[in-house]
């Protein structure tokens, strides 16, 4: 009897162990908890700034000063957004931002498809050399080419003009162009070329094949490239500030000078309590400036996340 208790105890222990740690290939409770715990913990750290931003942007001055109110504002206070909206000059700035991001993004995607197709479908002399050169352009810091470009643009009166972004993009030298060429290169290489060869035998020209066969097949790559290009142009403030000067502006650029614009719009001293720039207003401005991107991300989230997968950067 004693022995059977011991055996029972042993098997219960083994059961417990199996339940906690799991058997081979099947995780137990303990491991699962650990995995989810880590994921939720790191995930929280990741979105903590976003939660903070959103929560604080709805806080009135009283809420900001009240130590008892931490995460949830006592009321949805919209005044911050109203002021930030004015300071950013939201809708005109948004239109201008879209203008200087969408056009270069389209140009960059189109030309990357063209170039990527050339690299994927043809063999020619110096191909490897040229392709390595394309990849090397990725590591050249934009600061090195910035000054000559600036001088030339100022000679040609292109400063403060969208051409400063559009021209390099049209010739495959825009922001991270190398990555987009790589995406299209990998994409075209991964699809069989029988269809194109058949068309060629039937007497279609290369250009016609490209537009009527290759492009319709490349829709996923086009969407991914456009989205990434769009986001990267949107977030580019260093080059934008230099090339656009005061002529063109974007939401991130307006956010950069938010405090200064605010002081101009609501000069201090008129009404002490209401006209001071506080955290709530600044974060409302931040939220407004990323809101369009968030909308795009949540609509097209699948494409962004799969984009890295599809880029074939991990080798096929």
């Amino acid at each position: 009897m004693n022995q059977s208790i011991v055996r029972k105890g042993k098997s219960a222990g083994a059961k417990l162990k199996r339940w906690m740690i799991g058997v081979k290939g099947n995780d137990g409770f303990l491991i699962r908890t650990l995995i989810y715990g880590l994921l939720i913990g790191i995930g929280f750290v990741y979105i903590y700034p976003v939660i903070f931003m959103t929560s604080f942007s709805f806080k009135s001055l009283e809420d900001l000063l009240n130590p008892l109110i931490n995460w949830i504002p006592s009321a949805l206070y919209m005044e911050n957004f109203k002021q930030a909206f004015q300071v950013l000059n939201f809708f005109p700035t948004l239109l201008e931002t879209l203008y200087v991001t969408i056009l270069p993004a389209i140009a960059q995607t189109a030309v990357a498809a063209f170039i990527g197709y050339g690299f994927a479908r043809f063999t020619f002399r110096l191909k490897n050399f040229l392709f390595i050169l394309v990849m090397i352009t990725f590591i050249i810091p934009p600061q090195v080419t910035l000054i000559p470009r600036y001088l030339v643009y100022s000679e040609l009166n292109l400063l403060g003009n969208i051409q400063a972004f559009l021209l390099p993009a049209t010739f495959g030298q825009g922001i991270n162009s190398a990555i987009f060429i790589l995406i299209f290169y990998q994409f075209f290489r991964s699809i069989p070329k029988t269809l194109e060869e058949a068309a060629l035998l039937d007497g279609a020209g290369h250009l016609r094949i490209f537009f009527t066969i290759a492009i319709p097949m490349a829709v996923p790559a086009i969407i991914i490239s456009f989205l990434f290009s769009f986001v990267w142009y949107w977030n580019e403030t260093y080059l934008a500030a230099i090339f656009f000067g005061d002529q063109l502006t974007t939401l991130p650029l307006e956010l950069q000078k938010f405090a200064a614009s605010y002081q101009r719009m609501f000069p201090a001293g008129m009404d002490e309590s209401a006209s001071r720039l506080n955290e709530g207003i600044r974060l409302a401005g931040t939220v407004l400036s990323i809101l369009p991107l968030l909308v795009v991300y949540f609509i097209a989230q699948k494409w962004f996340v799969e984009g890295v997968d599809r880029s074939g950067i991990t080798g096929e």
Binding site: V50, V231, N235, T237, L255, L293, F304
Partner: peptide, 8 residues
């Protein structure tokens, strides 16, 4: 990756 621009 989407929202982290310099000013933000």
């Amino acid at each position: 990756v989407i929202i982290a621009s310099g000013p933000v």
